[in-house]
């Protein structure tokens, strides 16, 4: 039998109030083991309070070749940013 442990992606919340951040990956036979391995590998120095693991094959990623159509159209939509709008000097904060 030759079946290797699949790859998992590990996301760790460093402390409450922060989002889970991608920390790296590891191999594990199942989700439970992935979680335990993630704890042992990625939180040895007190780095986390919560862990997510997801098998890498379940992640759908955008293709960088499509970056033009995906992301460039957002570049000129300056009206989505507050600096696009003028305010009289008297209004200091808005």
């Amino acid at each position: 039998m030759k079946k290797n442990w699949p790859l998992w992606e590990v996301f760790v919340r460093s402390k409450n109030g922060l989002e889970h951040r991608h920390f790296g990956s590891l191999h594990a036979a199942d989700a439970e083991m992935a979680l335990e391995n993630a704890r042992d590998v990625y939180t040895r120095r007190n780095e986390g309070v919560s862990i997510w693991v997801v098998e890498s094959k379940h992640i759908t990623a955008s293709n960088p070749e499509n970056n033009g159509e995906l992301f460039e159209p957002a570049q000129d939509k300056v009206y989505r940013h507050p600096t696009f709008y003028t305010l009289p000097d008297e209004v200091k904060h808005m």
Partner: peptide
């Protein structure tokens, strides 16, 4: 048997 297990057992 794997790096992951090695690390766990050392812990």
């Amino acid at each position: 048997p794997s790096l992951e297990t090695d690390i766990a057992i050392t812990n």
